[in-house]
């Protein structure tokens, strides 16, 4: 116990790392599935691509219990307030994944009915483009998200 534990930074940064490590492998996702991307979400979630290998296989259908909001599929103006409300109900720390190009930018649905990217209504942490993204792309995105969660440790 020679080391001065009260020195600023040392212990807290290690704790942050540990928390980040724990968090990134126990992602509780809330799948907000609306459209075509749901088909690929199913593929990723099921046994063939098996999202569970990355510790994200446990969908929580209550926003209170989830920490990653997966927005899967086109968001129309009609459902946008619902999505926003679900985001608001989630407890921090929380991350948002825009799954599919419709959620990233509106995709080719540039029309009166579709939200032109969910980042106009809530903050997005990870964009996974593709129409729909192939499962491999989703897994790559998920690993990126894990990196981000690890790096952040705690997030207000």
């Amino acid at each position: 116990m020679e080391q001065d534990l009260s020195a600023p930074g040392i212990l807290t940064s290690q704790l942050d790392q540990a928390i980040g490590w724990a968090r990134k492998y126990s992602i509780f996702q809330y799948p907000f599935v609306t459209a075509c991307c749901g088909m690929e979400f199913m593929s990723v979630a099921c046994s063939h691509y098996d999202i569970d290998r990355f510790g994200a296989g446990f969908p929580r259908f209550s926003p209170r219990q989830a920490d990653v909001l997966m927005v899967v599929g086109t968001i129309s103006h009609k459902i946008a307030p619902v999505l926003r409300r679900i985001y608001d109900q989630m407890a921090a720390p929380k991350w948002v994944v825009a799954f599919g190009v419709c959620t990233c930018t509106g995709g080719f649905y540039d029309n009166y009915a579709t939200v032109q990217g969910i980042d106009t209504i809530l903050p997005v942490d990870l964009y996974i483009p593709g129409c729909p993204p192939r499962p491999e792309t989703v897994l790559e995105g998920l690993m990126l998200l894990q990196k981000k969660i690890q790096a952040q440790g705690r997030r207000a």
Binding site: T34, A35, G73, S76, K78, I79, N111, Y112, A113, T114
Partner: peptide, 11 residues
């Protein structure tokens, strides 16, 4: 219904 109206017919 209508939560996924994406204006197919308009497009």
């Amino acid at each position: 219904i209508g939560y996924l109206h994406r204006a197919f017919e308009k497009h």
